[in-house]
Design a binder for these strands. Structure first.
Length: 592
RNA sequence: GCGCCCGUAGCUCAGCAGGAUAGAGCACCAGAUUCCUAAUCUGGGGGUCGCAGGUUCGAGUCCUGCCGGGCGCGCCA
């Protein structure tokens, strides 16, 4: 239960009652009324702007409305105090019993605590990674992979039915180059040297684009499977089978990489399959019927005119109808569809599969593509579909402040696998969501393995481990005490009266709200910051026990209060675990 | 030249769909360990929220224009 939403309902009821009794005119717009935690906790537990929002339309002074509203709210059992402050805020102070009930609810819910009904009945498709099948994933992909996966988990927690999807770009010129590069390794396995000369001889007109070692085993496997059969075929004959073989091998590689991060997509969609099934033609025919396709000539980009620019008629999508800057080409000069065209078909396909809500997670270098894709989704779904694009900025990989070295194996980049093997999956997963997706991220391979405050992963994990340490110690002091969450939910929590204890309970009570806010904004990073705040408050309370021994969690002389304190400790632990679960990070119960 | 993203403390960044006196970590200074894990905690200094207008009860947040940085800009994906 989200306390703030509950009180928003209560405020609305009171407002409607004030309308009924003539204190307010009818027909007011209540949508802008917010019930939020005040920034300054000394202002109380909840705050509403209702009086200020309604003042103008009601033709009354904000303070007057606030006074009436506060008086009404003050009569409720859960409300200990209702004050009018500032320009017309109504600040509420809630009875401790309200907070105890939230803690008990958290304990009963366990890992499901924070689950929301926000998205119940709604389907959303999250497409992420979608790296070209031309090699292993690199660190840049890790961010999109983790952000997409965390976003999917977050939306699931908020009640949405989520599909995780990967779009395989296996239809363009890049995969032909992959095939050629793999063919060279095949020849190498048969005894030819892998040189530019060999490549030029066997793959005329192609470019040896993928030189990394990772294609060597692919060549060997090809040789083992096909023998020398492919060797003397014409390029147009060996290319399709080699391409299919290489793509399959690359996707296996990528799936293994994703698996090392614990990421499993529900569906891998193939661009080539889409094209070969005629779905691009269908989608574009549909778009044409809707009147968004025409033949025209584009202006050259100002200030950056390509050398070989010449105006020529093209098949264009009228994306300017939907806010794009220019109309976008759908066909190449050889008559085949552009990548954009097949991407339109792909998003149309997702829509037809039942996903009106789509989220794509892309690298920032695709930023120039966002407007046209959103425009296309608008056009092809007749305004029914909605696409949100999350752009992930670069990850600066560092080693103790210096740029990290390149990978030998992959040729030009640091692979995701190297990083995961070195620092661990949980560190990678957590660090990637400690920043907004659209802000650049420094990832220091040294610092993330240090055990310090600079390392948010350890800070949060330590909080979880400490909580479990207290629970273990309690079991020794009180062998008969049941510290399971169901039992603790029944404990008398009335002894939790210290402001820091109540503050911690309020943080726990705020978890469902955090989940909903983060889900609505499509911003999983917010939960990472929330976890930091929660753990900080817990560490702080723990430390107070050093000096103020009556504040310790385990009180050998007082089993009843100990039970209440353990309820709090377990509540903290389960919210941490619940949050880490969204990130796919394993909470640890012991760190020594 | 155009579009998108970013600009908040010395550094790295939060800022909860416009709310009250703008926060955290690092770094710096000063403290806490016969203690349930000091991998932690407490206190202190430090700000023209890039600049200038605008919208309104109220702007770091929204709009416009500049400045600075990143990304992108017809038949690459």
């Amino acid at each position: 239960m989200n306390v703030f939403n509950e009180f928003k309902k209560i405020v609305n009821v009171e407002i409607e009652d004030m309308v009924a009794s003539g204190d307010l005119p009818s027909g007011l717009d209540l949508s802008r009324i917010a019930v939020e935690p005040p920034r300054d906790p000394s202002h109380g537990d909840l705050s509403t702007n209702a009086a200020m929002v309604l003042a103008k339309p009601a033709g009354r002074k904000p303070r007057d409305i606030a006074d009436l509203l506060a008086a009404r709210l003050a009569t409720r059992d859960e409300v200990m105090g209702a004050e009018v402050a500032g320009p017309g805020f109504v600040n509420l102070r809630l009875a401790s019993s309200v907070w105890y009930a939230r803690l008990a609810e958290a304990l009963r819910a366990g890992p499901a605590y924070g689950d929301s009904a926000l998205g119940v009945g709604k389907r959303v498709n999250v497409e992420y990674v979608s790296a070209n099948p031309t090699g292993p994933l690199h660190v840049g992909h890790a961010r999109g992979a983790v952000v997409g996966d965390a976003l999917a988990a977050l939306l699931e927690k908020a009640g949405y039915a989520v599909d995780r999807e990967y779009y395989i770009n296996d239809a363009g010129a890049q995969v032909d180059q992959l095939a050629a590069s793999a063919f060279l390794r095949y020849l190498e396995a048969l005894g030819e040297p892998a040189t530019d000369e060999t490549f030029a001889r066997f793959c005329p007109g192609q470019e040896w684009a993928y030189r990394g070692d990772y294609l060597v085993p692919v060549g060997q496997a090809l040789a083992a499977a096909e023998g020398e059969r492919l060797r003397d075929l014409a390029p147009e004959d060996w290319l399709p089978p080699v391409r299919a073989f290489a793509i399959a091998a690359m996707m296996d590689l990528i799936r293994e990489d994703l698996d090392s991060l614990g990421i499993r997509h529900a569906l891998f969609s193939s661009e080539r399959a889409l094209v070969e099934a005629g779905r691009v033609d269908e989608a574009l025919a549909d778009l044409e019927v809707r009147g968004f396709v025409y033949t025209g000539v584009l202006e050259p980009p100002k200030g950056k005119a390509p050398e070989d620019w010449e105006p020529r008629p093209q098949t264009l999508f009228r994306s300017t109808e939907f806010g794009d800057d220019v109309d976008r080409p759908l066909k190449k000069s050889d008559g085949s569809w552009t990548y954009f065209a097949s991407d339109i078909a792909y998003h149309f396909d997702k829509y037809k599969r039942g996903f009106a809500d789509m989220i794509d997670v892309w690298g920032a270098d695709h930023g120039g593509y966002v407007k046209r894709m959103k425009a296309a989704v608008q056009a092809i779904t007749g305004g029914e579909g909605a696409l949100d694009v999350k752009l992930c900025q670069m990850v600066n990989l560092l080693e103790d402040g210096q740029p990290a070295k390149m990978s030998k194996r992959a040729g030009t980049f640091v692979t995701l696998r190297e990083v995961v093997d070195r620092v661990g999956k949980d560190v990678v997963r957590f660090m990637m969501v400690t920043r907004k997706n659209d802000a650049q991220l420094d990832f220091d391979l040294i610092k993330v393995t240090e055990q310090s405050l600079e390392n948010p992963v350890f800070y949060v994990q330590y909080g979880h481990a400490r909580a479990h340490s207290a629970l273990r110690n309690a079991a020794e002091t009180f062998p008969d005490l049941d510290s399971g969450r169901e039992a603790l939910a029944e404990a008398d929590l009335g002894g939790l009266t210290d402001p820091d204890e109540l503050g911690l309970i309020k943080l726990i009570a705020g978890w469902p709200r955090q989940v909903e806010l983060a889900a609505e904004a499509h911003e999983p990073h917010r939960l990472a910051f929330y976890l930091g705040d929660l753990v900080s408050a817990f560490h702080s309370l723990w430390s107070r026990g050093n000096k103020e021994t009556d504040l310790r969690f385990i009180l050998p002389e007082d089993p009843s209060l100990t039970a209440a304190r353990l309820a709090l400790v377990r509540g903290v632990a389960l919210v941490i675990a619940s949050g880490l679960a969204v990130f796919g990070v394993e909470p640890v119960e012991e760190m020594r």
